[in-house]
Design a protein around this nucleic acid. Structure first.
Lengths: 217, 217
DNA sequence: ATTTTGGATATTGTATTCAAAAGCCAAACT
DNA sequence: AGTTTGGCTTTTGAATACAATATCCAAAAT
């Protein structure tokens, strides 16, 4: 109900922005490559006005770079970029974890535990895609439990920029096992409302993410 | 030289965005009030295309809210908004401080000390405006010393959203004195390369900022 | 008197047009 | 041969024109 109306009501600009975001994340639009307006417009079936507005918001989100008079390109992340993002994300999720321990309701904590169980099930059956999706959900939800909107916004922004890389990242069986162990620790800390412990777990988790990812950039 | 060319080369869209940003910060555009396109276009002397693009980037930056088919408004910050921003800013500047202690060169630290001295001079002569400007500079520079671009970006984004409020904030003589004492502590920690101490100083400083500001929102 | 409805007006959203800048290639020159 | 110049083509930037939506007010109905 509400949601479908909301989708219909969204301005063309927003729809276009989402479409391009998806194309970037799934890799159809290669990092560093120029975005051909003409071709894009054809595919999306819109005119230049909403399209260019969409590019502006994507630029502000850090996914795209518009070079005046020279066309837009998909932002290509260097190793330094990714490192700096993970460093900040670590700090943000640390805060998220600490605040969640203080501010989340028992019900909310229980829901996190549930989600974790589902992830474990996927791990057992080696179901990559649903695990990946739930993992995103897990981190977003933790940010929500901080009850800090700015934190959520910043986290999801960095999350979006890293999405492609993260997916590539958690590939090897060992690294997956490591990630699972990290999540186990997080859940224990959250259940015990141990802010310090959860904070540390988040930082450690993101440090490992860097180790997994750094050679693939 | 380079800078002036860069300014000339900036697209109209960017110039318009900056102009509006300034209007918001200096308070000519009241939070919560509708932005009248027609009137705005007249004042700025541009057409709707670059203007609306500018609105999109400002929206992505969180300064403006565009309500589909109902016009844009200057984002109005609630107490919760400001609290959440300062909470995140605290975490970011804590990280910035810690990293700065590790990564800044002696020369850069020396430059910070210089800046601090200038601020002290302004405090002695009770020169509000230059102190305010240098204070912004101080915090931005600390973020730079972290050598983390994402951190700088996020910090400056929150900084921009809070600018108006912060200015209102540091008004009373006592609060100013308190802020000055905080900065004294920061400089000592930085000179001593004491990451933990500087981190704590940053968090404490932003907690106090909240106390100063909260009743004025 | 209050609510509802119809339509005129104002405002916003999108497409199209026009202008300017960058890219490209071939011819002329060193 | 390699480099520079001039103009043609493509692409981008900005303004205008057109369409859709919301807002407002008055008249009619309950």
């Amino acid at each position: 109900m509400g949601s479908s109306i909301a989708i219909i009501n969204r301005s063309l600009h927003d729809q276009v922005a989402s479409r391009i975001r998806d194309l970037i994340i799934e890799g159809s639009l290669e990092p560093g490559s120029r975005i051909d307006e003409l071709q894009m417009l054809e595919e999306l079936g819109v005119s230049r006005t909403p399209f260019r507005e969409a590019l502006r918001t994507l630029a502000a989100e850090g996914l795209v770079i518009v070079r005046p008079s020279k066309g837009s390109i998909v932002r290509k992340l260097t190793q330094e970029d990714v490192f700096s993002m993970l460093e900040v994300l670590g700090s943000l999720e640390k805060l998220a974890g600490e605040l969640a321990c203080e501010r989340a309701s028992d019900k909310e904590v229980e829901a996190m535990v549930q989600l974790h169980e589902s992830m474990m099930e996927c791990y057992r059956t080696q179901d990559r895609m649903p695990y990946y999706k739930m993992n995103q959900e897990f981190h977003s939800r933790l940010a929500e439990l901080s009850k800090n909107e700015t934190l959520q916004e910043m986290q999801s922004n960095i999350q979006a920029r890293l999405k492609r890389i993260r997916y590539i990242g958690s590939q090897t069986p060992e690294s997956w096992a490591g990630a699972v162990a990290d999540h186990e620790e997080m859940i224990l800390a959250l259940k015990g409302r141990d802010a310090t412990r959860l904070g540390k777990a988040m930082v450690a988790h993101l440090k490992k993410t860097w180790d997994r990812v750094k050679d693939g950039i």
